[in-house]
């Protein structure tokens, strides 16, 4: 754009705008009822330097924005895109702030606040409302009936929300584990006793069932048989010291995926399964009892037996309901 043309356009815009603006503050016009003359301090700070700074910032903003467009087409690298767009916006911001503080007139104005809470007008409102009930004899009763109808309609409107999901019933207690179902790994290969090493763990799933359910995954570990600290009656389902627990933390549903073993004696003497979310720590030797952390229940255990080829087979259902706690979590199936 040639300098002349620009000057011409600017002048046109300026005169047009200026013609519209009255010289005095409109609010200062004498005689406007209720408006005290506002107290305005005005200063015209603009200088050649400040205007040049704004121009430079605007030029930078333009260039950087253009660079963004070019980069987007030619070389859409995230860093360069962010840099160019961000720079452009920041440069524009600088231009605006410098213009706002160093170029345009600086004014400090005092504005009076309006009064809130006029007692007379409140009384008028009340009176109008009251007069709306003039001549009605059974006002109380009508209001009461309307309230009852309104509340019932509201309730009726809310009831269909119950269709948004199924009732609980036994849903949260059902797992895909059945006696006789084999334990397989993530690839579907059956896990055998030999796969489970002391100090290590494997993740297992019920063969042929869905894996992405909270009831499915188990974490399988192994102890020396004399390490197990449980009364004889509770030792069933741990053949050769192989123990399977639900892998879902009974606290808040994370996967229990840390096995604290080898043992850090003397501070951490017991092998334990740890949930990384909030550090619930379960004692492997005592069948998943809580050692530390927020979980309100032990880690449920899945009894195992060993098949003819050493493969691990579920020998019943979880000792407790799996998954995070809810009101019925400690109840048996069908008890809701």
């Amino acid at each position: 754009m040639s300098g002349r043309l620009r000057d011409f356009l600017l002048a046109r815009v300026a005169t047009r705008v200026l013609r519209r603006l009255p010289d005095v503050e409109p609010a200062e016009r004498p005689g406007e009822p209720g408006v005290p003359p506002p107290n305005i301090e005005r200063e015209l700070p603009s200088s050649a330097g400040a205007e040049r700074a704004v121009l430079a910032a605007l030029a930078l903003a333009t260039l950087a924005a253009a660079a963004f467009i070019v980069l987007y087409v030619a070389f859409p690298d995230t860093q360069l895109l962010g840099l160019s767009l961000g720079l452009s916006l920041v440069a524009f911001a600088v231009a605006l702030v410098v213009a706002g503080k160093r170029v345009v007139p600086q004014e400090t104005a005092v504005e009076e606040r309006e009064d809130f809470g006029d007692a007379q007008r409140q009384e008028e409102v009340r009176a109008i409302v009251r007069r709306g009930g003039d001549g009605i004899s059974r006002r109380r009763m009508l209001i009461g009936a309307a309230g009852a109808a309104g509340a019932t309609i509201g309730a009726a409107a809310l009831v269909p929300a119950a269709s948004l999901g199924p009732r609980v019933g036994d849903r949260l207690r059902q797992s895909p584990w059945r006696p006789g179902r084999r334990v397989v790994d993530a690839d579907g290969t059956p896990l055998t006793v030999g796969d489970i090493e002391i100090g290590g763990f494997r993740t297992g799933f019920p063969e042929g069932a869905k894996r992405d359910e909270l009831g499915s995954p188990v974490i399988v570990v192994r102890l020396e048989e004399d390490e197990i600290e449980l009364p004889e009656a509770q030792r069933a389902g741990m053949p050769s010291g192989v123990i399977a627990f639900s892998k879902i933390c009974p606290h808040a549903g994370c996967a229990v995926s840390i096995y604290r073993h080898p043992l850090y004696e003397p501070t951490e003497p017991r092998p334990a399964l740890v949930c990384p979310c909030h550090f619930s720590t379960f004692d492997v030797r005592r069948g998943g009892e809580l050692l530390f952390g927020p979980a309100g229940r032990p880690l449920p255990r899945l009894p195992l037996s060993i098949g003819s080829e050493g493969e691990l087979i579920a020998d019943g259902e979880y000792t407790e309901n799996y998954g995070p706690s809810w009101s019925g979590v400690r109840q048996e199936r069908g008890e809701t």
Binding site: I40, L89, V90, A93, V97, A99, G100, K101, V104
Partner: peptide, 27 residues
């Protein structure tokens, strides 16, 4: 400061500064 012109320019400046910083972070 009255909205026009001082405050409007400064506040718009803050809008672009916020957006600019966010895009710089994002990139």
């Amino acid at each position: 400061t009255p909205l026009w012109p001082g405050y409007a320019l400064r506040s718009l400046g803050l809008l672009f500064a916020t957006a600019g910083v966010l895009f710089l972070l994002g990139g």
